[in-house]
Protein backbone atom coordinates (compact mmCIF):
# COMPACT_ATOMS: atom_id res chain seq x y z
CA UNK A 1 0.00 0.00 0.00
CA UNK A 2 1.25 3.52 -0.80
CA UNK A 3 -0.15 7.01 -0.13
CA UNK A 4 -1.39 7.43 -3.71
CA UNK A 5 -3.46 4.27 -3.58
CA UNK A 6 -4.73 4.95 -0.04
CA UNK A 7 -5.82 8.50 -0.89
CA UNK A 8 -7.25 7.16 -4.14
CA UNK A 9 -9.36 4.60 -2.29
CA UNK A 10 -10.51 7.27 0.17
CA UNK A 11 -11.53 9.50 -2.75
CA UNK A 12 -13.48 6.60 -4.17
CA UNK A 13 -15.11 6.02 -0.79
CA UNK A 14 -15.86 9.76 -0.48
CA UNK A 15 -17.46 9.80 -3.93
CA UNK A 16 -19.81 6.95 -3.06
CA UNK A 17 -20.68 8.47 0.34
CA UNK A 18 -21.27 11.88 -1.31
CA UNK A 19 -23.66 10.28 -3.77
CA UNK A 20 -25.60 8.48 -1.04
CA UNK A 21 -25.70 11.70 1.02
CA UNK A 22 -27.03 13.66 -1.96
CA UNK A 23 -29.77 11.13 -2.56
CA UNK A 24 -30.71 10.76 1.08
CA UNK A 25 -30.67 14.46 2.05
CA UNK A 26 -32.39 15.74 -1.07
CA UNK A 27 -34.67 12.66 -1.18
CA UNK A 28 -34.07 12.78 -4.91
CA UNK A 29 -31.96 11.18 -7.65
CA UNK A 30 -32.51 14.11 -10.02
CA UNK A 31 -29.57 14.56 -12.38
CA UNK A 32 -28.15 11.11 -11.66
CA UNK A 33 -27.65 8.52 -14.37
CA UNK A 34 -29.07 5.21 -13.16
CA UNK A 35 -27.26 3.55 -16.05
CA UNK A 36 -23.84 4.62 -14.81
CA UNK A 37 -24.71 3.31 -11.36
CA UNK A 38 -25.80 -0.03 -12.84
CA UNK A 39 -22.49 -0.21 -14.72
CA UNK A 40 -20.53 0.58 -11.54
CA UNK A 41 -22.47 -2.14 -9.73
CA UNK A 42 -21.51 -4.56 -12.50
CA UNK A 43 -17.87 -3.45 -12.25
CA UNK A 44 -17.76 -4.33 -8.55
CA UNK A 45 -19.64 -7.62 -8.93
CA UNK A 46 -17.36 -8.87 -11.72
CA UNK A 47 -14.20 -7.60 -10.03
CA UNK A 48 -14.82 -8.79 -6.48
CA UNK A 49 -15.84 -12.37 -7.22
CA UNK A 50 -12.69 -13.41 -5.36
CA UNK A 51 -13.96 -11.62 -2.24
CA UNK A 52 -14.23 -14.87 -0.31
CA UNK A 53 -11.58 -16.93 -2.08
CA UNK A 54 -8.67 -14.48 -2.13
CA UNK A 55 -8.10 -12.78 1.23
CA UNK A 56 -5.61 -9.91 0.90
CA UNK A 57 -6.13 -7.87 4.11
CA UNK A 58 -8.95 -6.73 6.41
CA UNK A 59 -8.82 -3.30 4.72
CA UNK A 60 -9.18 -4.88 1.28
CA UNK A 61 -12.12 -7.03 2.31
CA UNK A 62 -13.95 -4.26 4.17
CA UNK A 63 -13.59 -1.85 1.25
CA UNK A 64 -14.77 -4.48 -1.24
CA UNK A 65 -17.84 -5.23 0.86
CA UNK A 66 -18.59 -1.51 1.22
CA UNK A 67 -18.18 -0.80 -2.50
CA UNK A 68 -20.35 -3.76 -3.44
CA UNK A 69 -23.15 -2.98 -0.99
CA UNK A 70 -23.16 0.79 -1.57
CA UNK A 71 -23.28 0.48 -5.36
CA UNK A 72 -26.15 -2.02 -5.17
CA UNK A 73 -27.91 0.25 -2.65
CA UNK A 74 -27.50 3.24 -4.99
CA UNK A 75 -29.07 1.36 -7.89
CA UNK A 76 -31.91 0.32 -5.58
CA UNK A 77 -32.47 3.93 -4.45
CA UNK A 78 -32.55 5.19 -8.03
CA UNK A 79 -34.81 2.54 -9.51
CA UNK A 80 -37.18 1.87 -6.66
CA UNK A 81 -37.21 4.14 -3.62
CA UNK A 82 -36.74 7.46 -5.42
CA UNK A 83 -37.88 6.26 -8.82
CA UNK A 84 -40.33 9.16 -9.07
CA UNK A 85 -37.42 11.62 -9.17
CA UNK A 86 -35.38 9.61 -11.69
CA UNK A 87 -34.97 11.56 -14.91
CA UNK A 88 -35.14 8.66 -17.37
CA UNK A 89 -35.74 10.95 -20.34
CA UNK A 90 -32.23 12.34 -20.08
CA UNK A 91 -30.56 9.06 -19.09
CA UNK A 92 -30.60 7.63 -22.58
CA UNK A 93 -27.03 6.44 -23.22
CA UNK A 94 -27.17 2.89 -24.67
CA UNK A 95 -25.41 0.65 -22.11
CA UNK A 96 -24.97 -2.13 -24.67
CA UNK A 97 -22.64 0.18 -26.57
CA UNK A 98 -20.32 -0.13 -23.59
CA UNK A 99 -21.05 -3.66 -22.35
CA UNK A 100 -20.54 -5.49 -25.64
CA UNK A 101 -17.20 -3.87 -26.67
CA UNK A 102 -15.83 -4.29 -23.13
CA UNK A 103 -16.88 -7.96 -23.08
CA UNK A 104 -15.36 -8.64 -26.51
CA UNK A 105 -12.17 -6.79 -25.65
CA UNK A 106 -11.89 -8.69 -22.35
CA UNK A 107 -12.11 -11.98 -24.24
CA UNK A 108 -9.46 -10.93 -26.75
CA UNK A 109 -7.08 -8.83 -24.61
CA UNK A 110 -6.38 -10.32 -21.20
CA UNK A 111 -3.57 -11.81 -19.11
CA UNK A 112 -5.04 -15.31 -18.97
CA UNK A 113 -7.96 -16.95 -20.72
CA UNK A 114 -9.82 -18.07 -17.59
CA UNK A 115 -13.31 -17.08 -16.36
CA UNK A 116 -12.06 -15.15 -13.30
CA UNK A 117 -9.38 -13.34 -15.26
CA UNK A 118 -11.72 -12.45 -18.13
CA UNK A 119 -14.33 -11.12 -15.68
CA UNK A 120 -11.67 -9.09 -13.88
CA UNK A 121 -10.47 -7.69 -17.22
CA UNK A 122 -14.06 -6.94 -18.23
CA UNK A 123 -14.55 -5.01 -14.95
CA UNK A 124 -11.40 -2.98 -15.62
CA UNK A 125 -12.51 -2.04 -19.15
CA UNK A 126 -16.08 -1.34 -18.03
CA UNK A 127 -14.98 0.89 -15.15
CA UNK A 128 -13.06 3.05 -17.63
CA UNK A 129 -16.25 3.94 -19.52
CA UNK A 130 -18.96 3.46 -16.85
CA UNK A 131 -19.18 7.22 -16.21
CA UNK A 132 -20.10 8.00 -19.84
CA UNK A 133 -23.89 7.77 -19.32
CA UNK A 134 -23.59 10.25 -16.42
CA UNK A 135 -21.42 12.69 -18.40
CA UNK A 136 -23.75 12.26 -21.38
CA UNK A 137 -26.77 13.05 -19.18
CA UNK A 138 -25.11 16.21 -17.84
CA UNK A 139 -24.33 17.29 -21.41
CA UNK A 140 -28.01 16.80 -22.27
CA UNK A 141 -29.41 18.63 -19.23
CA UNK A 142 -26.62 21.19 -19.50
CA UNK A 143 -26.04 21.34 -15.76
CA UNK A 144 -25.33 19.35 -12.60
CA UNK A 145 -26.09 19.93 -8.93
CA UNK A 146 -23.05 21.10 -7.00
CA UNK A 147 -22.93 17.97 -4.84
CA UNK A 148 -23.13 15.81 -7.98
CA UNK A 149 -20.12 17.66 -9.37
CA UNK A 150 -18.22 17.04 -6.11
CA UNK A 151 -19.12 13.37 -6.50
CA UNK A 152 -17.73 13.34 -10.04
CA UNK A 153 -14.57 15.19 -8.99
CA UNK A 154 -13.86 12.64 -6.24
CA UNK A 155 -14.64 9.76 -8.58
CA UNK A 156 -12.37 11.11 -11.33
CA UNK A 157 -9.57 11.87 -8.86
CA UNK A 158 -9.55 8.33 -7.46
CA UNK A 159 -8.39 6.74 -10.73
CA UNK A 160 -6.00 9.65 -11.37
CA UNK A 161 -4.37 8.87 -8.02
CA UNK A 162 -4.27 5.19 -8.98
CA UNK A 163 -2.14 6.15 -11.99
CA UNK A 164 0.37 7.70 -9.57
CA UNK A 165 0.14 4.50 -7.53
CA UNK A 166 0.98 2.40 -10.62
CA UNK A 167 3.94 4.66 -11.42
CA UNK A 168 5.15 4.26 -7.85
CA UNK A 169 4.74 0.47 -7.93
CA UNK A 170 6.47 0.29 -11.29
CA UNK A 171 9.58 2.09 -10.02
CA UNK A 172 9.72 0.80 -6.45
CA UNK A 173 8.02 -2.60 -6.52
CA UNK A 174 8.62 -3.61 -10.11
CA UNK A 175 4.85 -4.24 -10.35
CA UNK A 176 3.11 -3.27 -13.57
CA UNK A 177 -0.23 -4.24 -15.09
CA UNK A 178 -0.58 -2.74 -18.57
CA UNK A 179 -4.33 -3.50 -18.79
CA UNK A 180 -5.17 -1.67 -15.56
CA UNK A 181 -2.86 1.25 -16.42
CA UNK A 182 -4.12 1.82 -19.98
CA UNK A 183 -7.76 1.55 -18.88
CA UNK A 184 -7.05 3.83 -15.92
CA UNK A 185 -5.56 6.48 -18.19
CA UNK A 186 -8.56 6.31 -20.54
CA UNK A 187 -10.88 6.57 -17.52
CA UNK A 188 -9.09 9.63 -16.14
CA UNK A 189 -8.88 11.33 -19.54
CA UNK A 190 -12.68 11.05 -19.88
CA UNK A 191 -13.00 13.30 -16.80
CA UNK A 192 -10.62 15.98 -18.09
CA UNK A 193 -13.35 18.07 -19.67
CA UNK A 194 -15.35 17.84 -16.46
CA UNK A 195 -12.28 18.62 -14.31
CA UNK A 196 -11.78 21.82 -16.32
CA UNK A 197 -15.40 22.89 -15.77
CA UNK A 198 -15.25 21.89 -12.11
CA UNK A 199 -12.13 23.92 -11.39
CA UNK A 200 -13.15 26.96 -13.40
CA UNK A 201 -16.79 27.01 -12.25
CA UNK A 202 -17.71 24.99 -9.19
CA UNK A 203 -14.60 26.03 -7.25
CA UNK A 204 -15.50 29.65 -8.05
CA UNK A 205 -18.80 29.07 -6.31
CA UNK A 206 -20.77 28.90 -9.55
CA UNK A 207 -23.14 26.12 -10.54
CA UNK A 208 -21.79 23.61 -13.06
CA UNK A 209 -23.33 24.83 -16.30
CA UNK A 210 -22.22 23.46 -19.64
CA UNK A 211 -21.94 26.06 -22.38
CA UNK A 212 -25.29 25.78 -24.14
Amino acid sequence: MNAFRLVGDLCHLAAIVLLLLKIWKSRSVAGLSGKSQILFGLVFVTRYLDLVTNFVSPYNTIMKVFFLSSSIATVYLIYTKFKATYDGNHDTFRMEFLLIPCALLAIVVNHEFSPMEILWTFSIYLEAVAILPQLFMISKTGEAETITSHYLFALGSYRGLYIMNWLYRYYYENNFDVIAVVAGIVQTVLYCDFFYLYITKVLQGKKLQLPA
Binding site: R5, N54, S57, R169, A180
Partner: peptide, 10 residues
Amino acid sequence: EKKDPKKDEL
Protein backbone atom coordinates in the same frame (compact mmCIF):
# COMPACT_ATOMS: atom_id res chain seq x y z
CA GLU B 1 6.69 -15.08 -4.47
CA LYS B 2 5.75 -11.80 -6.14
CA LYS B 3 2.13 -11.14 -5.21
CA ASP B 4 0.01 -10.76 -8.30
CA PRO B 5 -0.06 -6.92 -8.53
CA LYS B 6 -3.69 -6.44 -9.47
CA LYS B 7 -5.09 -8.86 -6.95
CA ASP B 8 -4.20 -6.66 -4.01
CA GLU B 9 -5.81 -3.55 -5.46
CA LEU B 10 -9.48 -2.59 -5.20
